[in-house]
Amino acid sequence: MITTSTFDSRPAYGGLSLDERAKSHLVVAEGDGASAVLDAFEDAPPSLARTTLLYAGPDGMAVRLAILGAAEFRRTSGRLDLMNRLDEVFATSKMGARLYVAGTESFIGEVIAKAATYGVVPQSVIAEQRGSLARRVQCVHCKHVDEEVTATPYACGGCGQSLFVRDHFSRRHAAFQGVRVDAEVPGEIPAAEELVQ
């Protein structure tokens, strides 16, 4: 699945496709991102011999990834654990490796942001969005970040205010921006609209 961007600050991800010239592949996936990895790598045994695969997600998918045949497969206990592992991987990886990410928009954003701190150019990362289209949103007022926001406005998990989700995406925060919807007339809160179908 390819998502199209309706506005410029939200990256459009082209989907996982193998960089044939890469000397090795660093593949990072979360949740339903596993299916994108399977699609891209299942028929590429020679590449798998040069692939390091990190995954955080449910058993079923983890098993399918484990038997895919990557040179190295690590399943982590969750996103936080995966991000910590990723530091070790980035610290010891060499150029010639290509980074691939598959999962939700917020997961992709977080991985790319981490890679950028190692000098990796974000545009060089190959990514595919899979799984929930729910948004990760940062409250501009209290800076609390809510995961899995599916409607706008919604109640901020930090300050409790009703937030309108702006179509403005920050790669660094891997999040959209939430702004109080009834700041001008307190209590005047429009009916919630679904952000995802």
């Binding site: 000397k23 980035f90 990886s93 060499k94 150029m95 010639g96 490796a97 890679a115 000098g119 990796v120």
Partner: peptide, 10 residues
């Protein structure tokens, strides 16, 4: 000269 350069090299 390229092999072995750390990830993030330019």
């Amino acid at each position: 000269i390229l092999p072995g350069q750390p990830f993030g090299t330019h």
